[in-house]
Amino acid sequence: MKLNKTAIIFTVLFLSSLANQVAFADACLPLENARGTLENSDFNLTYKTDPLKISVSKPFVLHVKICKIDETPYKQNLKFDAMMPKHRHGMNFTPNISKQSSGLFLIEGMLLHMPGQWQYKFDLKSNGQKTQLTNDFLLK
């Protein structure tokens, strides 16, 4: 009887860990070593740049991961722009956004041509409603 109880406990623990792993496999996880994390009541957005350190007037790409608050990947379209809010102008180029997999997006053709205060603007859709996540940063 005692052995049976132990076996049952181990079986339960094993199954629950397996279930956890399955759940994790489906879960949308933020990017590792992200340079920025933005959140609102619907989304968690993380991004990092390549190269990691961006410089004035040098091209780079943005890797963006967007997870819904229920930890499933965001699968709708992403719109993006970078602005200098104080001067009310953006970049000289239109970046190209491509959807990868599981909430991952690649933004190519990024180039910030001036030092100063910049703002990334990510436009998403949630239940038919538009929502925007922004991130302000100083480029030196």
Partner: peptide, 15 residues
């Protein structure tokens, strides 16, 4: 190359 990519993505703006 990146430069070709930039040329293709250039924006014509009023400014």
């Amino acid at each position: 190359g990146t430069q070709t990519y930039l040329t293709n993505r250039i924006k014509l703006q009023h400014r």
